[in-house]
Amino acid sequence: MKEEIKVSVIIATWNAAHLLPACLDSIAAVQVPGLEIVIADGGSKDNTVALLEAFKKVPLHYISEPDKGIYDALNKGVSQAHGKWLYFMGADDRLLPGFANLCQKLQDEHTVYYGNTVPVYGPEKPAYTLLVGEFTPWRLAQYCMNHQQIIYPASVFAKYQYPLKYKVFGDYALNLQVWGDPHFPKVFYPINIAGYYMGGLSSFHNDTVFKKDKARIILHSMGWWTYLRFLIKRFKRRHLQGHPVFF
């Protein structure tokens, strides 16, 4: 009898063969029963496909074709996944033993479960502390959380997709929608589940479209109270305190 897929680990790649072996080995090392890997590759020109064909430690399947960016690739990965829960990571991320501990706590198929992530390499940044701990809707309205710390029920993606209009913060836009949706309870466990590269995509690219839309997303997803509170705090940061503000 074929093993039921409980968790699908979805990775978007493009010419990442130099990173994938360590990433895939970290997934295999956590030894989560009923786990599959789904690779959405953007048509790599290196030896990514050969590497994926040779990997046999964990059930893995992939597509390799041109895409419209990372969020298009992740949406394609969702369409190929069989798990009751979906987890997203990059080729430069690494799963930690705590991932298996969080997977043991997955029960309700409409609940979002999440833990903590830690920087494993790359330039250190003091903003790391903003990513640790429980996220209320108000905290999320202020700070983007790492998508590597979240295990989503597949039911989230029956309702939402990663928006393609945002080149860097499509995951932030999706999380604002999900955290504002009462149909998906959120449960936090103080467990380190993944290590991530501090110099990732969001560190080097600007997403002016998301910055322009962020307040509107908060209003539509989280309501007037959070929206007005967000606007007031942003105004104070920009005009009263003289502090730079990211969004």
Rank of each mutant, 00 (worst) to 15 (best):
G34E: 04
Y166F: 15
F235H: 15
P126D: 12
K57H: 08
N146M: 11
W14M: 03
N15I: 01
E65T: 07
A17K: 04
Q31S: 07
L86Q: 09
L20W: 08
Y172T: 05
Y113D: 09
V120R: 07
Q241E: 15
G77S: 14
L174Q: 00
L174K: 05
A29T: 04
W179E: 02
F184V: 02
T48K: 06
I39Y: 09
V32M: 04
F184L: 07
L24E: 10
L52M: 08
P119V: 05
L52E: 02
Q107C: 03
W14C: 06
V118Q: 08
N15R: 05
V209K: 13
M198K: 11
F235L: 09
W179I: 00
T13I: 01
S44R: 07
A29R: 03
Y152T: 00
D46N: 06
D93E: 11
L24D: 09
S8E: 13
K68H: 11
L231F: 01
A173H: 13
L164G: 08
D46A: 10
D67L: 03
V49Q: 14
Q148C: 08
T226Q: 09
C103W: 09
D108T: 00
Q177D: 02
G90F: 03
T13H: 10
A91L: 09
Q142E: 13
A16V: 01
H243K: 15
P126Q: 05
V58S: 11
R237G: 13
T48H: 12
E134S: 09
F99V: 06
H243L: 10
D207R: 12
L106V: 01
Y197F: 09
N47P: 08
L231R: 15
Q104K: 06
A22Q: 15
G115H: 01
G98T: 02
P119G: 03
K57D: 10
A12S: 08
K165I: 08
D72I: 05
E4F: 11
H82I: 00
Y197P: 00
Y128K: 00
A81I: 07
W179P: 01
R237W: 08
S79L: 00
K68G: 00
M1K: 14
P123E: 13
P119M: 14
L164C: 02
S155M: 01
S203N: 13
L35I: 12
F230Y: 15
Q241N: 11
V9P: 11
S44L: 04
K167I: 03
V132K: 12
G242A: 09
Q142L: 09
C103G: 02
K212H: 13
A100F: 07
L51K: 08
K2S: 04
P126G: 04
K45M: 11
K214Y: 04
S202G: 12
L51A: 02
N75I: 01
I27R: 12
L106C: 07
A17Y: 01
T208G: 06
F55S: 03
A16S: 14
Q107Y: 02
P185D: 02
V112N: 02
R237C: 05
M198Q: 14
L219T: 01
P33Y: 05
E65W: 04
P59Q: 13
